[in-house]
Design a protein around this nucleic acid. Sequence first.
DNA 1: CAAGTTGATAACATTTTGGTTACAAGGCAT
DNA 2: ATGCCTTGTAACCAAAATGTTATCAACTTG
Lengths: 227, 227
Amino acid sequence: MEKKHIEIVLIEDEEDILELLEYHLSKEGYEVTGFLSTENVEQFLEEENPSLMIVDRNLPGMEGSEFVWHLRQLGYKIPIIFLTARDQEGDLEEGFRCGGDDYMTKPFSTKELLLRVEALLRRSGITASSTVRYKDLMLDIQKHQLFINGKPIDLTNLEFRLLHAFIKNPKQPLDRDFLRDEVWGNDSTTFHDKTINVALNRLKKKIDPSGEKNYFAPVWGIGYKLL
Amino acid sequence: MEKKHIEIVLIEDEEDILELLEYHLSKEGYEVTGFLSTENVEQFLEEENPSLMIVDRNLPGMEGSEFVWHLRQLGYKIPIIFLTARDQEGDLEEGFRCGGDDYMTKPFSTKELLLRVEALLRRSGITASSTVRYKDLMLDIQKHQLFINGKPIDLTNLEFRLLHAFIKNPKQPLDRDFLRDEVWGNDSTTFHDKTINVALNRLKKKIDPSGEKNYFAPVWGIGYKLL
DNA sequence: CAAGTTGATAACATTTTGGTTACAAGGCAT
DNA sequence: ATGCCTTGTAACCAAAATGTTATCAACTTG
């Protein structure tokens, strides 16, 4: 698996399990840092900026949930998955209450953990894949390349930013001010009314020359929306 | 439990379970809308703007995961929790792959479901529904769109502002000066008496062409009110 | 009921906004 | 520098929204 450049912190006092999880997560392309206790983790968080944490509830010294609560108090918003050997509801509730996002009971399947990691990263807006899709449009963020039903379409820089803005907010009317900020940058003092019209027109013509797909619809007096 | 003004959609074909979950979620203060199949759900999503969906994987007609995949293709980002009676890893993987955020296997504890709902809402940043309602009128502020009994009605900008002013102050006579300020903006120096009449007339005709609903009533010498 | 005032409605005029095209200015690679 | 590509600007037209005016109906008051 290729590198994803997504950092995951793993806190687990049973060394076997720690190593096993490190192995599987690394194999998936995540950059994993393992800890046997909560010690030094806070310092690590100050320096690095990991995307997700997997924490055992049952740790020596400070309890996992207590530690997470502490982090949340400090303002850390990092997504957290709890692991636990116990299965009582009280524990589960405590785990969620202190700010956990997901909770898995040992023994669990590695596959499920990986899926939950992925889902949580997705929901948190940390995209492993560098592509965004909408209907038959697929936008490769890194390559600045659009694919329509797999067919590559070259976009200019402006067209790319514009389409990206719309795909990020599908079905929503985006008003002209928003688009000006998002696509052109708010620094422009002189900004002509029709600049957006023309830019969108060019984009429409490029991604749908025959005009049969109707990707965009004008919202009168507001702006445009992606259907 | 007091109202939270958070809307949850529930799709589950076993009526017992549907009712049970509706009961528990309502008791927590959520506004729940239950469906026995995926039918009509898409239309519902167009009109309302729920914050979360709970979907059975095993539905008559369209599979739950297939349906969710479909929604994701259309650009819906709504958080989704899957329910399933099955327990094979393949199913679980499919559930996450098609865009689910969490996955619970029946039988599960209601408590855990509630906790997971809460955690997912927290992580998603709860979107307070941007709608205003009055009787069978529902105004979606973000979409700039009016729905009457679920049927979308396109409004012009002026009509939208006008109706918004009335829905914000239902049953209250709004005088012409107030409406001028609120809807037209107080900067207009030349403002004809009949402008408001004509504008409201157009609005009335658009939202109630047959004139049977009688949304508005004139208040002689003052202005109008929404009944 | 009569007169005056206000509202409803329809037709028309004006203004605002979007679509489209052509052209010009600037950037970038050869 | 030359030529191509990108992007902004302007001009024009079309469409939509909104304003204006005129006429008639409804209401209020004496």
